[in-house]
Design a protein around this nucleic acid. Structure first.
Lengths: 332, 332
DNA sequence: CTGAAAGCGCTAACAG
DNA sequence: CTGTTAGCGCTTTCAG
């Protein structure tokens, strides 16, 4: 098949150990010999067999990245951040989609373990079931989840602060009746955002009204339908905090269809700042997250664990940043 | 580290060869013994070491996927199609971003070769430099490229047919002066689309006017600027065929800003049908591509090559389908 | 049906 | 500075 160090050794006329040393920049080879070996192996088109290397060194120089779905606009930037940081350090990354499914997630983990990845970055679907990863004693970085345990490493989003800023923004610029359209109640981040929305209203002495709070699904179409219903009630909202941008898009649709002018008559704020949000035709005000950097950071934290062979307990919490675009505006 | 077949063999009280046979469903083990081994290895949490397996069997059960950029909305669906098909067949996929860069692309390939992937699916940046892949005698499926050689396997887009249908659509529904806003002239698909646009105009006895043809970049912002300029000329277009949806988004922006009503006063058609195109606020008429299926198909073709260990010369060309939304409309 | 032994390509002691 | 040897975990002959 490919060229091996044995082939090179034969050509150069040394033992294959010497070739290995030369190619790995280990001491114990004369520099002339090293140059010669490097030159010849390049000529022969040698590519190290990382499988063999990994078998003996117990390190494959690969990592696994498990996300729910790369087709969901939230994830590609994170994935790219991870990949860029990893490839810079000589790591190759396995990408797996868990498809929001706990079973599939387990399969992904098993597959990565079989491939002897050096570490895993995961945006989990359930926090409970992931004890398995701890048993593995495999370096892991969690993204978009929080653990109370002090010995797990994660990069979480500050949902509380984000939702607070978003809600307060709507209040500050003069919207009077602020509703909430959320995703599934099973989602950790959705619930945090809802709680914080409620707290913020209360802190501003605004009555919380369950009629203008709805939890549905992280889906534009469903959000559209739910919002449509909400706009038909007796005392409808004049602004909505959407639990994420996917939902905000559906809200926008329903609101414009109702003939309400955004942002003059109706304010909308989302969460995540997906690429759709900045389109000229959308211009959604939203809470922005440094997704690419989160991916990069996740790899850095993983690398630290992998290199030090010790559990790094770094726990990051990212504060989302308000991006004012054209779906909210100060009212007179 | 992990449990090995030797560990299992000791517990069961057989040789590790027998364990290997049992776990791999090879003949030569009594069914009671097989059951016992399977049961115990599950209890012990055994995960096969694919590195070791790959080293001897010369097949890693992994493939590489090289795309320009997972953050570009065109690619995630393809990637997901590949991943789903692969994982169904027990393959794990390495994802690499070449970042539209030929050097980086080479690095990706080398890295995948080192990891001894069984095959590669690649959306190449340059067709010229890929002879390297052929030397490797590695199964390869190209996506979004065409080769005249009969012995390379690819899934290409029928740019000629797509651009023809798009242009003809604008003509048929009554737009009179149809311009073209393209991406980089270096792009194979861009040029094919432009050529076919010109041919279609000529076949309809419409004069081709270079003043309303521009090639810029596959970038919404740049397309916006170019279109703005084009709308200012003496005899501006009343419709534009955009080389892809990213560009069409910029065209839309410029046209609305100019105060022209879409689709009544101005028609726009794109290419690719990225997720943005179907947003209620956008509703872009475009040429749709089955991106997910293309990914799936790419893996199937690769699998055939990997299993038969022979070059499969299947060459697919996908015809894009017209999706009429709200940026084009029959004129009276 | 089962076991012993060789070897995949490489790294890491251990000698010289 | 260089070579010899063992062995990573597994599959695959070859014997029994």
């Amino acid at each position: 098949m490919g060229v091996t160090i044995v082939d090179i050794a034969k050509v150069v006329g040394v033992s294959y150990t010497t070739v290995s040393r030369a190619l790995n920049n280990k001491k114990g080879v004369s520099s002339e010999m090293r140059d010669k070996i490097v030159k010849i192996s390049a000529e022969m088109g040698y590519q190290p067999n990382t499988l063999a290397r990994g078998l003996v060194s117990n390190s494959s120089k690969t990592i696994g990245l498990i996300i729910p779905d790369i087709m969901n606009p939230f994830f590609p930037k994170i994935a790219r951040g991870v990949e860029d940081a990893a490839s810079e350090k000589g790591y190759t990354v396995f990408l797996s989609n868990s498809n929001w499914d706990v079973e599939k997630e387990k399969e992904c983990i098993n597959s990565l373990v079989s491939n002897r990845v050096d570490g895993i970055i995961i945006n989990p679907n359930s926090t409970g079931d992931l004890v398995k990863l701890r048993d593995l004693k495999m370096p892991v970085v969690y993204v978009n989840t929080k653990f109370t345990e002090k010995d797990v490493c994660f990069i979480n989003i500050d949902n509380v602060s984000g939702a607070k800023v978003a809600t307060q923004h709507l209040i500050d610029i003069g919207y009077k009746r602020i509703g909430f359209v959320g995703g599934t109640v099973k989602s950790y981040s959705n619930n945090k955002r809802l709680e914080s929305y409620i707290d913020t209203l209360e802190n501003n002495n605004i009555k919380v009204d369950r009629d203008i709070i709805v939890n549905s699904k992280f889906d534009t179409e469903v959000a559209y339908l739910e919002t449509k219903k909400m706009l038909k009630i007796e005392n409808p909202p004049d602004a909505i905090f959407a639990a994420n941008d996917i939902i905000a898009l559906g809200v926008m649709h329903a609101v414009s269809e109702q003939g309400l002018k955004i942002p003059e008559e109706f304010g909308i704020i989302g969460f995540d700042d997906i690429s759709e949000a900045k389109l000229p035709q959308i211009q959604l005000t939203t809470m922005s997250l440094p997704k690419y950097l989160m991916g990069k950071k996740a790899f850095e934290l993983l690398l630290e664990q992998m290199e030090n062979d010790s559990i790094n307990t770094a726990q990051y919490t990212i504060k989302p940043k308000l991006i004012e675009r054209n779906t909210t505006k100060k009212r007179k």
